[in-house]
Design a binder for these strands. Structure first.
Length: 426
RNA sequence: GGAGAGGUGGCUGAGUGGUCGAAAGCAGCGGUUUGCUAAACCGUCGUAGGGGACUAAAACCUCUACCGAGGGUUCGAAUCCCUCCCUCUCCGCCA
C-alpha cells in the first residue's frame, strides 16, 4: 500500500515505473475516484462541524433555561443528512481502497526490467551438478523405494497433495529443521520464534494475502482462524500496529512452521512428489529494518539462506526476479534454486524479498527515526523450504544401490551417515 | 463450558451524557541551571484523513474521525443500550 499523498504527487512517475511490471495504472479512474472521495469527505465533514457547533449552542441555551425544541429538530435533520452522505463516503472510500490495494509495489531501481521469468537474471551459481554414472531417480521413486515416503497412505488418510514421511524420511525432515534453525540462530544472528500455525484475518490483511488471495488459503469453519500459508504471516504481524525502536533494528527472526496452501489454480502442476503439497514445512527468515538499510539486509538474508545449501553441498543458483516476475508486494526478490537431478533442473527452494514500506504501511509497522515516525521496512525469505531441501538431498546424494549419503554437516542431526533401502520400515 | 471483573494516549491512571482528544504522573523531546553526573525548573509532547496557505515538501492555520470492534439511543456519547472480540480471577473439563 502506498502513502496517499506521495502517490498523488508522483502519479505519473509511479505509473511509468509500474508499467515495467506489466501493470497499467488507470490514471483517470484514480483521479476520478480520488476527487470523488475528497469531495464527499469535505461535504460530510462540513456537516459534522455544523452539527457539533449547533449542539454546543443547544447546550448553552439549555443551561440558560431556553426551550431548544426547534433547534433540536433542525439538528436532527442535519444528522439524517449526515447519515445519508456517510453511506456514499463509505462506498466511495471502499472503492478507492480496493483500487489502491490492487496497485503493486514499485520495483527497486536495481531490478531488471522484463516481461516474464525468461528475463530473470542469474546473479550467482554455487557448486556443480554431479554427473551420474547410473540412471538417477526422482525422489518420488526413490522415497517410496527407500520406505521413507508414502503417498498412497497419505491419500488414504487425507488426500491428494499430501505425503507421509516414514522412519528415516521423517527423521531427515526433523534433522533439516533443527539444522537450519541452529545455523540461523547460532551463526547468522536470528532469534527463534515459534508462532501459532493459525492466524486471524487481520494478520492476513497485514501481510497482503487478503483480500486478493483468499482462494490460496485454508480457512477453519466457524471461526476467524486460517491455516498459515507461511510463517511470514504470524511473524511479520508480531509487530503490527507497533512502533519499533530504531536503535534495535534490524530485528532478525527465524521460525519453523508447517505451511498450508490450497494450491488452487495449480492443478496438473508438479503433481508427482513433494514439490507442491498442501502442507509443507519451512524455516522462515523475517527482518524488520530501517528504511535506509533494507537492501543491504536483503543481501544478508539471501546469503543466510544460501548458506544452508552451501553447508549441505547442494548445487544452486540465485536469480534476481525481473520486474514482471515478482510478487505484487515486493520491491526486489531473489529466488534461490537448488539443483534437482531427478528433474534435471534448478528448482526454487527459497524466495527472498524486500517489501520496503509496502507491507509495513498496510500492517502499520513503524519506526521512529529522529522525531519522525515512518514505516519500517519488512523482508522475508525461506531459509529454507524443508521439503524441497529433503528432495535435494535425496536426489543429489543418491547412490547406485538406491541408498542416500547424508551430507556431513547433517549427520549429527540425523545420527546416521546413510539412508539405506529397507532400513526404515520394519 | 459456568460465574465475576475489566479493556482510555508509549506506560501508569482519572473521567459515568455537553468546550474531553481526554486530568495527573512517568517516559520522550526542546530549553534554563550545572565543573561532570544527578536533580530542579520552564516549555513541548497521540494517530489518521480533509480543507486552507505555499512554487513545493515540512513547519503553520482550520475542520473531521478515533477512548477494544461493530451497531443503536440522543440535538449531543469515552460516558447509556445491544452484539462481538480480547484480558484477568474463580469453578468445571482437558494435553
Amino acid at each position: 500500500m502506498y502513502d496517499f499523498s506521495f502517490f498523488r504527487s508522483n502519479l505519473d512517475a509511479i505509473a511509468a515505473r509500474l508499467t515495467t511490471r506489466g501493470f497499467a495504472l488507470d490514471l483517470d479512474s484514480f483521479r476520478n475516484l480520488d476527487a470523488k472521495r475528497r469531495t464527499a469527505l469535505t461535504e460530510v465533514e462540513g456537516l459534522r462541524a455544523q452539527r457539533n457547533a449547533e449542539s454546543m449552542e443547544i447546550s448553552k441555551l439549555k443551561k440558560a433555561g431556553v426551550d431548544t425544541a426547534a433547534q433540536q429538530a433542525k439538528v436532527r435533520g442535519i444528522g439524517e443528512e449526515i447519515a445519508r452522505l456517510e453511506e456514499q463516503v463509505k462506498a466511495v472510500d471502499e472503492e478507492f481502497r480496493t483500487l489502491m490495494a490492487g496497485i503493486p509495489n514499485m520495483p527497486h531501481e536495481s531490478v531488471p526490467t522484463g516481461t516474464s521469468a525468461e528475463d530473470n537474471v542469474e546473479v550467482r551459481r554455487h557448486g556443480t551438478p554431479r554427473s551420474f554414472d547410473f540412471p538417477c531417480k526422482a525422489h518420488w521413486d526413490l522415497g517410496p523405494e527407500l520406505g521413507i515416503l508414502d503417498f498412497e497412505r497419505a491419500a488414504k488418510i487425507t488426500g491428494a497433495r499430501f505425503a507421509v514421511y516414514m522412519g528415516m524420511g521423517a527423521k531427515l525432515e526433523r534433522a533439516l529443521i533443527n539444522f537450519m534453525l541452529d545455523v540461523h540462530t547460532r551463526e547468522h544472528g536470528y532469534t527463534e520464534v515459534l508462532p501459532p500455525f493459525m492466524i486471524n484475518s487481520a494478520s492476513l490483511y497485514g501481510t497482503g494475502q487478503l483480500p486478493k488471495f483468499a482462494a490460496d488459503l485454508f480457512k477453519l469453519e466457524n471461526s476467524d482462524f486460517w491455516l498459515a500459508p507461511t510463517a511470514e504471516v504470524p511473524v511479520t504481524n508480531l509487530y503490527r500496529d507497533e512502533t519499533l525502536d530504531a536503535e534495535k533494528l534490524p530485528i532478525s527472526l527465524c521460525a519453523y512452521t508447517p505451511c498450508f496452501r490450497s494450491e488452487a489454480g495449480s492443478h496438473g502442476k508438479d503433481v508427482r512428489g513433494i514439490i507442491r503439497q498442501h502442507q509443507f514445512q519451512k524455516v522462515e527468515l523475517v527482518k524488520f529494518t530501517r528504511p535506509d538499510q533494507s537492501h543491504e539486509q536483503l543481501e544478508k538474508l539471501t546469503s543466510d539462506a544460501e548458506d544452508i545449501l552451501v553447508r549441505l553441498g547442494v548445487p544452486f543458483r540465485t536469480v534476481v526476479l525481473c520486474t514482471s516476475d515478482m510478487g505484487p508486494s515486493s520491491a526486489k526478490t531473489y529466488d534461490i534454486e537448488a539443483w534437482l537431478p531427478g528433474q534435471n533442473a534448478y528448482r526454487e527452494i527459497s524466495s527472498c524479498s524486500n517489501y520496503e514500506a509496502y507491507q509495513a504501511r498496510r500492517a502499520s509497522i513503524r519506526t521512529k527515526i529522529g522525531n519522525k515516525t515512518e514505516p519500517a521496512h519488512t523482508l522475508n525469505g525461506s531459509g529454507l523450504a524443508v521439503g524441497r531441501t529433503w528432495v535435494a538431498i535425496v536426489e543429489n546424494f543418491q547412490q547406485r544401490d538406491g541408498s542416500v549419503v547424508i551430507p556431513e554437516g547433517l549427520r549429527p542431526y540425523l545420527n546416521a551417515e546413510v539412508i539405506t533401502p529397507g532400513a526404515s520400515l520394519k
